[in-house]
């Protein structure tokens, strides 16, 4: 499965007819923020529960298919609209990754969610995540496409050390994003953990690097 493109009004009408959730991203080539939203949709597609719910994602060029944009009052890009049975069930105007993630999850898992799957406790989930790798980075975006200058600089420093590490994109998971701030009592991202222990954000990593202590910290 991937994020498809709807090229005509007819295809759009067929696409949104589905009884399972369909998510349409109204985008324009010239707007950078649309690329970010597409990235968020791709991440959502990787979630097994969302795959199981048969949720489909598509991109619609808001200018080429202006007829549709006008009908759904899309007056800025990016806009994401959620449909079921051809009816709009929800929408997010603007590149609000957290809202998009939350709404897609709510609507896709509404009925299809397995009844007996006990939700993992958030604290256990966070513990498992920060211990997923010896060196774990919680950041905005991925290591190949950081979505924030602070995260990008941190990745550059880490790549320079040659140490292996894993990353988690907090923009794709609002629960982790808010939960980890409280769990670790640290208000901002990126956050770097070594063996499950918070080392700090970019300022601290930079200072460790300047003092020549970074390698030893990462290889602890």
């Amino acid at each position: 499965m991937s994020v498809s493109t709807v090229e005509s009004v007819e295809k759009f009408v067929n696409f949104i007819k589905s009884p399972t959730l369909t998510v349409v991203h109204f985008a324009a080539d010239w707007a950078d923020q649309c690329g970010q939203v597409t990235e968020v949709l791709r991440e959502l597609l990787k979630i097994p529960e969302i795959q199981a719910s048969k949720t489909q994602f598509a991109i619609c060029d808001a200018e080429n298919l202006s007829e549709i944009s006008l009908q759904y009052k899309v007056d800025s890009v990016p806009t994401v609209i959620l449909f079921k049975n051809g009816e709009q069930v929800d929408r997010v105007d603007g590149a609000d990754a957290a809202q998009i993630t939350a709404k897609v999850k709510t609507h896709s898992l509404g009925k299809a969610a397995p009844v007996n799957a006990a939700p993992q406790k958030l604290e256990d989930r966070l513990k498992a995540l920060i211990n997923r790798h010896n060196v774990m980075v919680f950041m905005k975006g991925s290591r190949d496409a950081p979505r924030c200058g602070f995260s990008r600089t941190l990745i550059q420093i880490l790549n320079g050390t040659g140490v292996s590490y894993d990353t988690f994109d907090i923009l794709t998971d609002e629960e982790v994003r808010q939960g980890l701030k409280e769990y670790s009592d640290w208000p901002t991202y990126p956050q770097l953990y070594v063996k499950g222990e918070l080392i700090g954000g970019l300022d601290i990593i930079k200072e460790l690097q300047t003092n020549g202590e970074l390698d030893a910290t990462l290889k602890a």
Partner: peptide, 27 residues
């Protein structure tokens, strides 16, 4: 940037600016 008076005296006292954060995603 949090330093003790001794560290501050020994440093070059130049503080570089932060990277741009690039997005409207909030914290």
């Amino acid at each position: 940037v949090a330093k003790t008076p001794k560290q501050w005296e020994e440093s070059d006292k130049i503080v570089e600016s932060s990277p741009n954060c690039k997005g409207g995603f909030g914290k």
